[in-house]
Design a protein around this nucleic acid. Sequence first.
DNA 1: CTTTAGGATGTTTACGTAAACATCGCCTCG
DNA 2: CGAGGCGATGTTTACGTAAACATCCTAAAG
Lengths: 346, 346
Amino acid sequence: MTSGKAPREGRKRHVSMGDVARRAGVSAQTVSRVSNGYQGVIPQTRELVLKAMDELGYRPNSAARALKLGSFHTIGVITFSLEAVGNHRTIQAISVAAAKAGYAVTLIPVDLPTQSGVEHAFGRLEELAVDAVAVIVEVHLLDRAKVVLPPGVPTVVVDSDAGDAYTVVDTDQADGARQATRHLLELGHTTIRHLAGPESSYAAQRRVDGWRETLIEAGLEVKDIVRGDWSAASGYEAGRTLVADTQCTAVFCANDQMALGLYRAAAEAGRRIPEDLSVVGFDDSADTPAYSPPLTTIHQDFAEVGRRSVAAILEQLRTGEQKPGTSIVPTRFIHRASTAPVRVSS
Amino acid sequence: MTSGKAPREGRKRHVSMGDVARRAGVSAQTVSRVSNGYQGVIPQTRELVLKAMDELGYRPNSAARALKLGSFHTIGVITFSLEAVGNHRTIQAISVAAAKAGYAVTLIPVDLPTQSGVEHAFGRLEELAVDAVAVIVEVHLLDRAKVVLPPGVPTVVVDSDAGDAYTVVDTDQADGARQATRHLLELGHTTIRHLAGPESSYAAQRRVDGWRETLIEAGLEVKDIVRGDWSAASGYEAGRTLVADTQCTAVFCANDQMALGLYRAAAEAGRRIPEDLSVVGFDDSADTPAYSPPLTTIHQDFAEVGRRSVAAILEQLRTGEQKPGTSIVPTRFIHRASTAPVRVSS
DNA sequence: CTTTAGGATGTTTACGTAAACATCGCCTCG
DNA sequence: CGAGGCGATGTTTACGTAAACATCCTAAAG
């Protein structure tokens, strides 16, 4: 009875331009023109098409569009965790900057921070619909021999040491550490210890370097570092060692969360901050102004890192060529209330 | 001299199955079979194809694949900010659970937490390559009349009130608030105040409700709430009001960060925690065990929320139908050291 | 030795879109 | 009044893949 080509009842079929075109009595190409906002369509025709689109519930098929145009307008972000303080701030900035440029952001989680985990994530990359990649993992986790970024895919490596092969956007970790240490020196401290991040972290290593260099320049003793894993809990554990060192009057912490742990260790040991112990953090995370006392720290401009990363990617996408080199985002010293001049002891 | 069809030097053309097929001396379909791990290809042929793939640097084109298969294997996550404590944890969990199921996650940032910002994000959704959507914005920001999720796209609304229209995964905020308040009651506190989150937040509202109900049930006075904006700084500001209330011996904070601010306010006012003031937080964020003293709080299982969200999406994808309903993830009380029995005053 | 089944591989086609090119009609200008 | 030009629209084609179908060959069975 009915037409041989009755609309199937089953799984909702995609409404295509052809369907809209038929309904509107125009060609598919005209539908395409309306869909893409091309100007050379007279209002009357446009109305017709829009009406048909609306009635049929037309939505452009991005797969087809991507196939035709050769671009997804999507940037992949390879990352281990969103939990580390910096990561989600960087990713937030990346996704906002990307959106502003009309790009979406796809997360590619690395399930384990191991060689194989990273390899797996890079493997998935092959099958993912991205035009470019931002890598936010500790790149030294990558065995260069095994993990190769797909050639021809514009890539930016964030906050890590990627050698000369890639475009890198990095925060000036070492300088931040130097600023922090210098500040403590200026306050007259002579025993300035460091609560470091994990050995596996490149950023942690650079912060250790900056601290150490500054002390050596000043001709001061470089005491052993104590390591945490970035967590506040580890900062507390490490902090117990530090507060037990009565010579030590100042601690530079590799991040704010560990500084928070140190606060607790100091409180338990009866050492007041900043009167008995000066503390400088790193990151300038959102909570620090409300620490008790508010934490003197080093501000990291994650937003700028995100912006530059996207800018670098867009540049590569535009010119079509990798441009190895490192873009350094400066850090800024933020003075709050957790540091004070050393008290003349004895 | 050379063949008329020399490989263009210009923009790197995509290596297609056809290219590989020609090189390997097989058909494109066989390349497809090898690419997809189909078993009925004899090892010798497979080797040939793999070798050709390798030599040419073949990478499957996901746009074409998506067009053919009608699926991107991608879930879109609409969110305002990654900064709010819960968000990035939920998104992390979603992306991991999604990856486990072979799905990628695309972030769709809402640039402003306003009606128009949300509308814009939903607009972008139309052109994005996603099979399903998880919405992690305060849904009441949406004007139902204006913002309509594209029909036929499986959708899950996370931690928000979406009425009966969508599948919802929600944390049991009210129950968490009740547990927190009950704990304080059991310790003998009779003036228990609430440091609430912003009025615009659904979660904040539910926590207020849970706190209020419990106090009313106990026949206690319900004092005015003081509001913050989730930030530690706002917790400090609001906290100054609360610590000034000498009758008040216990505060239930709508999140951990504001509790941290309250800690500072208490310290400045010379009120010790927990001796003079008991504090309960909400979220069980990573830092809380290292607060000084460690914060008693309500654990939110963000990972479970993420897992259930993905599960619900996969279910919708599988069956092809929306299944409205709410899945409630329980909260858990975590006893640490910031609460103590009320001291007999006077 | 012929037949047949089934495994391995090749050929055709469609997915939905947009660029490139083709057509048509109307307006302007000489 | 005719040529030319241009604006609006239609037609053809290709993007890269995988399902469906077609073919070929080998080996086992009769």
